[in-house]
């Protein structure tokens, strides 16, 4: 295994994060803080507790997931799309490095950044709302699994995209609506019957529900099912990446 290459790709990507720290870390942290102020303190103070959890605290796991999902996809897709766009991809393809090692470097860096951001938001939330984490180990497991899974998805997206517009298409028009409708701001039990059923087709519901369970011990859907869904999405991404490695799809002519 070419560990030097994996380390260099990882270091390169992380260096870009710290070079653009305002855009990469501070801006998402600030945006989420505004959510806490608006939905947690201002509106949340007038809302009743959900499952015995104050509304401000209830939305914390959903907001963290929203950021982790968005940032994982965004970082990983940009990480691999930018060399394709600028032409520097030639160096990756001509180096003695396997596609699996390339994936490891980019996905590892994107997942690290998303996890860092998730933890920063978690820390920030403690300034606004009372917070408890009942299952800290599972909280970390859900966080890492989600960051890695959606970084893998983002990597695929970056390889697939042939224009900047396509790169933005899936995060803006698919992922963001699914995340907002995935129970970030409400429990799906609050939805009328048919919409509750429809919502269960949204995979993000399971991520948020499982993650929220690790905080408060309460979930919209069975926690084992939540974990299984993440594993299934990760497996699907890995299968697609394995196929991509074999064929050189959208990387080689």
């Amino acid at each position: 295994m070419n560990l030097h290459a994996v380390r260099e790709i990882y270091r390169f990507e992380m260096a870009r994060t710290f070079r653009t720290i305002v855009q990469s870390i501070l801006a998402p942290a600030l945006t989420t803080s505004l959510y806490f102020i608006v939905f947690g303190s201002a509106i949340g103070s007038r809302m009743t507790a959900i499952d015995g959890v104050p509304y401000g605290a209830f939305i914390v796991p959903g907001l963290i997931m929203l950021s982790v999902l968005t940032e994982s996809i965004g970082n990983a897709s940009f990480g691999i799309y930018f060399p394709k766009w600028s032409g520097t991809i030639y160096e990756l393809l001509s180096a003695p490095v396997s596609t699996a090692e390339i994936v490891l470097g980019y996905v590892g860096a994107a997942a690290t950044k998303a996890t860092m951001l998730g933890l920063i938001i978690l820390l920030t939330s403690t300034f606004f709302v009372p917070l408890q984490v009942r299952h800290p180990v599972w909280m970390v497991v859900f966080l890492l699994m989600t960051a890695v899974t959606f970084s893998l998805f983002g990597f695929l997206l970056g390889v697939w995209a042939t224009t900047w517009e396509k790169l933005q298409f899936v995060p803006l028009l698919v992922v963001t609506p699914l995340t907002f409708l995935g129970g970030s701001f409400y429990s799906i039990d609050m939805l009328p019957g048919v919409w509750r059923t429809v919502t269960l087709f949204n995979p993000v519901v399971y991520l948020i529900s499982g993650f929220r369970w690790s905080f408060y011990g309460k979930a919209d859907v069975n926690v084992v099912l939540s974990f299984s869904i993440i594993v299934a999405i990760m497996a699907a991404c890995l299968v697609l990446i394995a196929w991509m490695i074999r064929t050189g799809w959208r990387l080689k002519h």
Partner: peptide, 29 residues
């Protein structure tokens, strides 16, 4: 093998030494 492609394709925001160090690492050195 080393390759110098026809088009100049570099990471504009990187420093010279950093991008050259990156290349060395990619090749497993």
């Amino acid at each position: 093998i080393g390759l110098v492609p026809q088009e100049i394709a570099t990471d504009s925001f990187e420093s010279v030494i950093s991008t050259v160090r990156f290349s060395r690492g990619l090749f497993g050195c």
